[in-house]
């Protein structure tokens, strides 16, 4: 079962701030959903391979040939903060 500390830990991994109310609600909701999901833990899956790609395709590679890049104005046009022709953020070191 999922507890408050786990919710806070997972929220930190997901870079999600949660209000007190959200933490409380998610603790209950996630617990309830996980309870339903737990049914798969009772299945015997010995020797069953995992499927990550449902249709078997291989070899879809790209030739090493250049394609046009975006003009810088387009690349930056949706950025919340632009500085020195780049995407500005609060410094990680700060």
């Amino acid at each position: 079962m999922i507890d408050r500390d786990t919710v806070l830990h997972v929220a930190r991994l997901a870079r999600l701030e949660l209000s007190e109310e959200e933490v409380a609600r998610l603790t209950i909701e996630l617990g309830a959903v996980l309870e339903h999901i737990e049914t798969i833990s009772r299945l015997d899956l010995e020797g069953v391979p995992p499927t990550s790609h449902v249709i078997d395709v291989t070899g879809a590679l790209r030739a090493d040939e250049p394609e046009p890049c975006l003009p810088r104005e387009r690349a930056l046009e949706s950025a919340p903060e632009v500085l020195d022709d780049g995407f500005a953020v609060p410094s990680p070191q700060a």
Binding site: A14, R15, L16, E17, S19, E29, V33, L34, P90
Partner: peptide
Amino acid sequence: LLDMYTRTRHDGFGAEVKRRIMLGTY
């Protein structure tokens, strides 16, 4: 930076999206 990430995602995502992000991250 951390504050920017966590508050942006707190403010920008709705309840169901947060629920699934939490479930999937877990």
